[in-house]
Nucleic acid binder design. Structure first.
Length: 507
RNA sequence: GGCGCGGUACCCAAGUGGUAAGGGAGAGGUCUGCAAAACCUUUACGCGUGGGUUCGAUUCCCACCCGCGCCUCCA
């Protein structure tokens, strides 16, 4: 069965067929780097990563471009407020974004170009639009003449006449001939960064960078373009106008849009106090892998209601999967293999692929793997599981995780690597500066939960205590054994006695 | 007002014209020195409301109610 994806352009789920054999060109709208990215951004980025990973899983050769918009009103304003040069300011948040991406296991796209490195290309594209009669200058700025592009509105299904009638008063001080027109190049204003170009001194408008960078790296027509639902209009609509207006060719074949994340049923916003960056959640003790799991578990076209309860549930679900993998790897089973279980593993893999083929139905894909987990655990409990079944089951988990990328429990390593937590004299400290939400200036919650504190105990120390406890158990000194177990529990380490020995995990 | 998405158990959530996946949480049980993990049982006679089509609808059609998003800041 073929991969099917919902195309915003047609409003339908379509069979996916790349332009060139098995090569797929994808442009994913990245971040405007005016501050730390928030979890709403990451909902979209996780979706894009799942898409990317599944395309690879399906054998496609992926060429992904993710832009960084490092010049716009907000970046300029925030840089000025911070007393930094625009480049210095955006460098800082690009770096933070890279850290976040690694924490969330987002694969690095083939290219991550910055808008300000492509000014020349923007100028050329704008000149081409002027030549084609689709753009005009006014007071040193250049605007796109929407009325001259007949397909305008085809992506967002906007009613052009309605737009004209209902257009808001343009608060911008630039002069446009028509309220619907949008700016391609902004004339220089005192105190703002600028580039001297054949178009005059100024800076680019918001949408042009995406047209330029996508076509430069992926060609004038490419396969997939994606982003958050809010970008359908005006951003992507304008990109189509700019690109097709210049080339006369279809710009993008499949447009994919992720529904928004809301928090406790409300739109996330700073004024409501429900605005979270990844760092905010880390500061509250949540694991990046659990955050990724939550963001990936709801199919991308469905609005995701983020709650702390939901995040907790995600962590619990993830633990179940990890427990199963642990058992699969560690437990001893009789020789041989079970034809029935082998068939079940095959069926689970097929269900998983069928679910993702269906417009990336991650919730259903999750169901497929949990079914197998239960069946595997049952077989083990009943003594029906065979050593030869191990590989087949592990393969399903590994296949699943090639797309979900959450099973590896290495959150602490990463948090330590980036300095979010440090071990000082046996205790964990949190780097307050790093987990601070710079956008709001609010200091992060300094009380780390046991989830992260637990990570501080070195493995060797934990194992030493387990050995001591097991010795006590052998002596029948259960009081001592329970004391050790509860001490470890307080430090966030959970012990589990199994037939093949005591295992432990960090909570 | 226009365009769009959605309303499924305590929470998250899949899904089909033929009688409701999966996860979390709760309760009871098995196992365990006790736990944990795991397993079993249990929690929607019902899928926003009202009509309609049909032998039969949660699934199709119509109307209505509610939530959310977009309508040039926004992933």
């Amino acid at each position: 069965m073929a991969l099917r994806l919902h195309n915003t352009l047609s409003g339908k789920v379509e069979d996916f067929q790349p332009l060139n054999d098995n090569k797929v060109g994808i442009y994913t709208c990245g971040l405007t780097v005016y501050g730390y990215a928030h979890i709403g951004n990451y909902r979209t980025f996780v979706f894009q990563d799942v898409l990317r990973r599944y395309l690879k899983y399906r054998g496609y050769e992926v060429n992904q471009v993710m832009n960084l918009t490092d010049v716009d009103d907000k970046t300029i304003k925030n840089a000025q407020a911070a007393g930094l040069d625009l480049r210095e300011y955006t460098d800082k948040f690009i770096e933070a974004f890279e850290v976040d991406r690694e924490l969330l296991n987002l694969e690095t796209p083939e290219r991550v170009p910055r808008a300000t490195d492509h000014i020349d290309g923007m100028v050329k594209l704008i000149q081409k639009l002027i030549e084609n009669g689709l753009a005009y200058s006014s007071e040193g700025s250049v605007y796109f003449r929407v009325a001259n592009f007949k397909d305008y509105g085809k992506l967002s299904k906007m009613d052009l006449e309605g737009m004209r009638a209902g257009a808001r008063v343009d608060s911008d001080e630039y002069d446009k001939a028509d309220a619907r027109d949008f700016v391609l190049w902004k004339a220089h204003k005192e105190g703002e960064p600028y580039w001297d170009t054949p178009l005059g001194r100024g800076r680019p408008g918001w949408h042009i960078e995406c047209s330029v960078m996508s076509m430069q790296y992926l060609g004038e027509t490419f396969d997939i373009h994606s982003g958050g639902a809010d970008l359908v209009f005006p951003h992507h609509e304008n990109e189509i106008a700019q690109s097709e207006g210049a080339t006369g060719k279809p710009f993008v074949r499949y447009w994919l849009h992720a529904a928004h994340l809301i928090v406790n049923g409300e739109k996330m916003s700073k004024s409501l106090g429900n605005y979270y960056t990844l760092r905010d959640l880390i500061a509250k003790g949540f694991k990046p892998s659990a955050i990724r799991y939550l963001l990936a578990s709801v199919p991308y076209r469905k609005q995701l209601n983020f709650t702390f309860d939901g995040l907790h549930q995600a962590q619990q679900s993830l633990d179940r999967l990890r427990n199963f993998r642990f058992r699969l790897r560690q437990e001893k089973f009789p020789e041989g293999e079970s034809a029935e279980l082998q068939a079940r593993a095959q069926a689970a893999l097929a269900s998983f692929e069928k679910a993702l083929d269906d417009n990336l139905n991650t919730a259903e894909a999750l169901g497929a793997v949990f079914d197998l987990v239960r069946e595997g655990n049952t077989a083990m409990d009943e003594g029906k599981f065979r050593d030869g079944d191990r590989a087949a089951f592990l393969k399903v988990l590994e296949s699943w995780d090639r797309v979900f990328a959450v099973l590896e429990d290495n959150d602490f390593e990463k948090l330590r690597k980036f300095g979010f937590v440090k071990t000082v004299e046996g205790a964990v400290t949190v780097d307050a500066a790093l987990v601070q939400d710079a956008a709001t200036g609010t200091p992060a919650d300094e009380s780390y939960t046991a989830a992260v504190l637990a990570e501080a105990l070195p493995d060797g120390e934990i194992e030493k205590q387990i050995a001591e406890r097991n010795e006590a158990r052998r002596r029948g000194d259960f009081a001592r054994a329970d004391q050790i177990r509860s001490q470890l529990a307080q430090a966030g380490v959970i012990l589990e006695d199994t037939k093949s020995g005591t295992r432990w995990k960090r909570k």
